[in-house]
Design a protein around this nucleic acid. Structure first.
Ligand SMILES: [Mn+2]
Ligand SMILES: [Mn+2]
Ligand SMILES: [Zn+2]
Ligand SMILES: [Zn+2]
Lengths: 139, 139
DNA sequence: TTTTAAATTTATAATGATTATAAGATAGTT
DNA sequence: AACTATCTTATAATCATTATAAATTTAAAA
């Protein structure tokens, strides 16, 4: 398990981020739970383990991770910023009933039309809302 | 031009929304300017014409329009909520340099994979960021 | 090991967008 | 005109995020 922490530390060091205890814990959290947590969720979960944790540290750390491309922001609803340690290209589905967010694979280049041929594309976001299979059955 | 106002009023009446002066002006604004304005932009532009206008009215009206499917929210960055009177399915491109938002057409079903076959889909959002042709030339 | 400096974390205050609430204005009805 | 419901406005409350400065930790220097 120290091995695990060493691996997380390595990931940070490779990105020129000093592997502090808080940063390692936040990265571990994002990589383990693959929910797409808000800052509040991360904080309230981790503060149980790290009683001195400050919400500012969570904000600072996530910002650092974002700059290093270790995490990306999932733009779903424009009031709750969510974070995702899976930075490879994929889409998100949010269930309107239970609030869960699902990843789904997508050939993200296939839908690009000619209309964008003169644009330089840096990032792509696909977000779909609806009802998930579990909630559909409950009706 | 009273004809124009009558047309806007009709649109609202069809959706069971009473066509008040403020509502007509906000709808007119959204339909004419096809920018994807924030509440603040709508308010600061319209208050020149309607000095008594309140920002709360803009919020209330946009909420009403959204429920009636007259407008939709464009989720681009999760700090600025933008509104769009074009409710048909299309994607958005935001230029990181000049901030402009471009519409682009997209066959939004073409990229849906099997992984979502058991999900009920209610809405789709595609958002791309990068540099627009105009800003590319300035380099 | 002590001293020093830099980096990180924390607590707290400030900001800004959105929502909530209640009072005032408007339009339609008896 | 008086009444009623609806809409608009002004204002306060809330909540996420950002900013600031003090406290703590870490690493390097002496
Ligand atoms: Mn994801
Ligand atoms: Mn649009
Ligand atoms: Zn669900
Ligand atoms: Zn541009």
């Amino acid at each position: 398990m120290n091995q695990k922490i060493d691996n997380l530390a390595k990931i940070l060091i490779e990105k020129n981020i000093k592997p502090s205890y808080q940063r390692i814990k936040i990265l571990e959290y994002l990589l383990n739970k693959k929910n797409h947590p808000t800052v509040d969720k991360i904080f309230s979960d981790l503060v149980k383990e790290i009683p001195t944790l400050s919400k500012a540290t969570v904000y600072n750390t996530l910002d650092l991770f974002k700059e290093a491309n270790l995490t990306r922001i999932v733009t779903i609803e424009n009031n709750e910023t969510r974070y995702d340690a899976k930075v490879s290209s994929h889409g998100h589905f949010k269930c309107e009933s239970c609030g869960s967010i699902f990843d789904f694979e997508i050939n993200i280049d296939s839908f690009l039309t000619d209309s964008l041929e003169h644009f330089k594309i840096n990032g792509k976001n696909v977000y779909i809302n609806g009802i998930c299979p579990g909630c559909l059955q409950k009706d």
